[in-house]
Computed example of a mutant assay.
Amino acid sequence: MKKSNSTLKKWMRGVFASSLALTVAACSGGGQSEQTKPADNSGNQPAPSGGDAKPAEPEGDQKIIVYTARDKNIFEIVLPKFKEKYPNIEVETLEMGAQQILERVRAEKANPQADFWWGGTQSALSTAADEGLLEAYKPTFADKIPDLYKDPQDRWYGEMLLPEVIMYNSEALKPEEAPQDWDELVDPKFKDKIVIRNVLQSGTMRTIYSAMIYRQGPDTPEKGYEWLKKLDANTKEYTQDPTNLYLKLDRQEGVISLWNLQDVLIQSKQNNHPYDFIYPKSGAPILVDGVGLVKGAKNAEAAKKFYEFLFSPEIAAQLAKERYQFPSRTDISKDDLPDFMKNLDLKPLELDWSVMAQKEKEWMQHWDENIKGKGKK
């Protein structure tokens, strides 16, 4: 259901302006192995039917299998701390893209091999929930996650938020010289100053472009197509991957792009690229990266422990500081967050994500066949 912009704006501002703070294309990684063996079934608790009770303490040595779309630089923070708290629970991860996780969990429905799904868009997780692939579980922190970022039947919860923003080379442009909102991107003064990651291959870019169509009116995509034609006219190049995008921006072969905020911060603060961002005045598409328990998991009780630990304020605050993650929990103390998060108002664009999911393929195919590279003609 579409949320009113005023309600969301009020919630977002309250999170960052008060003592509470908010910390979601899916990320992908290289698989650790070709096949994950099923977890040992001896001594495991039976799969739960849901509910909000505190998870039972697993007895004896346990192993949980985690299918994840998160990056190793997240594991190196989370997994050692979890092992420290729960030395009898081993966590085995198998890395793949969120879409691959959906396909694998779907294929294993009759005999689940995974216990926990870590890292997926609201679209992928909602699809899995609708197909009966995720177990209902109401965690202890359920009331700390806004309704917009969790499943109403408790089958998945958003762990972090991924706002999509305007990125620019801070050595080439002053903040006031960069586009301040989406419509400024199509101003002729920015002609040949924009470089874009190849849209069809990027969940981030597909989301941004679909949002640009939606905001012009989802029932009349022609208006959105016209807007994208103007953006194409200002776009100097579409790069094959993020590495080439960064190279072009570093060389100032283009000085403006569109990207997710977390990665902009990682590239600038950790990797020393000369990047900064503008949070669009009218709001930004905000993706959710979430988690869920696999239905029929063989190690469900141990997986619940991991679930609760992953969302703990301690871990959420550390990932915010060290990995620039925006946590979905609204009860993280402002004092525990990095400075750039404390006063940033994550104003969302008013979008109907179900409509976006239904129309994305059609819209992006039209863009690819009729708009890409044709704006300058």
Rank of each mutant, 00 (worst) to 15 (best):
I166M: 11
K150P: 02
E369F: 03
P242A: 05
L161T: 11
K223L: 09
A284S: 15
N244V: 08
N5F: 13
W11N: 10
E34P: 04
M167A: 05
K361L: 09
P46A: 06
A172M: 12
Q113K: 11
K236G: 03
D143F: 01
E159R: 05
E76Y: 06
L231T: 14
K334E: 12
D143V: 02
W363E: 03
P152K: 15
A128L: 08
V199N: 08
W367N: 01
I213R: 01
M341V: 07
E308R: 01
P48F: 06
P175D: 08
E350P: 12
P242T: 09
N41C: 07
I208C: 03
Q252L: 03
Q153L: 12
A56C: 08
D289P: 00
D276G: 11
D232G: 11
I213C: 02
A110Q: 15
P48G: 15
A302E: 05
P179F: 02
Y168W: 10
D335G: 15
L293R: 10
F190N: 10
D345F: 14
S42P: 01
E369K: 10
H273I: 00
Q100L: 06
S42V: 02
L249Y: 05
P218R: 14
A56Y: 02
M96S: 06
S202D: 01
K298I: 00
N169K: 10
N370C: 01
S18W: 04
Q113M: 11
L351Y: 13
Q267S: 12
L310S: 00
Q122C: 04
T140S: 14
G217P: 08
S33W: 11
